[in-house]
Design a protein around this nucleic acid. Sequence first.
DNA 1: TTGAAAGCGGTACCAC
DNA 2: GTGGTACCGCTTTCAA
Lengths: 343, 343
Amino acid sequence: MPKISITSYDVAQAAGVSQSAVSRAYSPTASIADKKRKHILKIANQMGYRPNAIARSMSSARSDGRQRSGIVGVIVTRIQDPFFANTIALFSSLLQAKGWHMLLFTIDSPEDVDDALHSLMQFKIDGVVILSAILSEHMARTCQANGTPVMLYNRNASAAGISSVQIDNYAGGQTAAEVLLNAGHSRIAFVGGIETDKTTQERERGFADRLAEAGCPVVQREFGDYTFDSGREAAGRLFSGRDRPDAVFCASDVMALGVLHAAMQDMGLRVPEDFSLVGFDDIPSAAWPGHQLTSIRQPIRRMIREAVDILIARMENPELAPALVTYPGVVIMRGTVRMLSAD
Amino acid sequence: MPKISITSYDVAQAAGVSQSAVSRAYSPTASIADKKRKHILKIANQMGYRPNAIARSMSSARSDGRQRSGIVGVIVTRIQDPFFANTIALFSSLLQAKGWHMLLFTIDSPEDVDDALHSLMQFKIDGVVILSAILSEHMARTCQANGTPVMLYNRNASAAGISSVQIDNYAGGQTAAEVLLNAGHSRIAFVGGIETDKTTQERERGFADRLAEAGCPVVQREFGDYTFDSGREAAGRLFSGRDRPDAVFCASDVMALGVLHAAMQDMGLRVPEDFSLVGFDDIPSAAWPGHQLTSIRQPIRRMIREAVDILIARMENPELAPALVTYPGVVIMRGTVRMLSAD
DNA sequence: TTGAAAGCGGTACCAC
DNA sequence: GTGGTACCGCTTTCAA
């Protein structure tokens, strides 16, 4: 059997001090002679000692009933989506930069959030970020009851005591409509992600409302599942009929790229000559020279930074009220929307 | 102050049994009357009790000195790279499907692995996956000493006691060379990621060796940093001179796409008429209609599944010897390499 | 099969 | 400032 790990007791013995002293040496606020601390830390480092984070969070279970594990749980759906993968990456680095660890939980369907959260709570996580899903009323209450702050990213905070940071999907849809209207289009189609999805619904609603206002209703609605292939397939349905739309708004860039590639390569259409295209998210590949996709940008860096800040603030001070933040999307004009030559 | 969390003691009291009984109810192997277990579980569920995973791993610190946390640490560089993001996604779902949790640690530079590992080890993780980086001899020994199995994904296991799963970069480079040679090219260039990177080096070596064998050495070498933009910039250098290469091999698909977009859009070149292009990885977007990038595929699903299996086996049985697995890359012919009309 | 009790590795409070 | 000690919530002996 390999040598077991070194404990504070081992260090204490080697340093000729009490075990409590070793513990104090690692607590910045503890009252301990500077000299002694240095001595202990030196020996500890020599021995390769590292405080056991598990034991620490175990014992610091305070009288208020909260353990502090230093771990933030992150629950995510659709992790294979480049947009989400990127989001996780950002959450990870930001949390880490502030000294928190991230326990990642992947779920296949938004309904699994409650289970996932239960599973994570066994680790006494200090807080949780939920990406693109909402939790049940019941679970929300549970979290509030034991003081675990929840951050809903990309979704409305449905229940009390929960924070959220999200893009203004409705306004984004409106903006997309305006861009297309301004370009003089009249046969405008919409391609959504999953139809029952809040995000898709809001984007469509904003889009359709604005179009209706202008007396130019959506001529065709197609739905996919946010993947490239589903966008590609939607393009097939969009452009196979005789009365083709002359403009398309996709609820995500990935699908928009699917439409773009399909239309240009599979069907020989030109963009924006044959139709204009607007996406949502502004993922990096939207800007690639061959795409030049006009899109509604989500300022994800800022959004994630804010989400992390809010969460951390609440983890450190549970008394803090939850925050609800909505960011406006900004349209990034590129080459997939036609320009009107004259005003 | 919110209500504190429910402990096994609370459940015991409510069920009129001892605390040990509650513990046993949750241990499949424990000897407890079936009736009693059912009774306890029922009450526990009613109360919303969940065993505290922290306390559990604390107390199960066995005489062999190993705690079992149920957590696997994953250390990753370049998490923003779509290829890596995808890899994490797969690791996450596979580990989770087998009942393990994943603590994710992002590092900016491969040298930070040791620190990251130290940080993770404080949580008494049961095993660790390291993506595209290697650890120091010293750290490798530490892991072996306290029985933490290490899985190096995408890298050679440099030290003893460490497992690895990786693609055969050298052979992949050779294959790329053959594809280009077979297409009758003679002015062949290479675009690598970071020049000091083992992966880039091996791919180039295989590529260059095979080319040299054929008496057709690499005419130009360019390096980037695995990003799209760096591929795009490399294209600028590649095609600005008078004696342009007639074929390019990129050490990653992302860079290859950068070259492709730049060449086609920025410089008006056609592929494969003006030059052939081969990438590496076979990421999803390589197959998009507008790209049709010929690439050396990494069978990442199988590779990751194997990596997870090996790691889990070793976590469950520390006596097991580490495994070293290398997968061959397979060339996926698409449209970016010209076809010779006749043999 | 059961309950009592001894830890697991720390933290924090207690007198000194 | 310091060492001694009572926990944290659970698992696992040990007797009964």
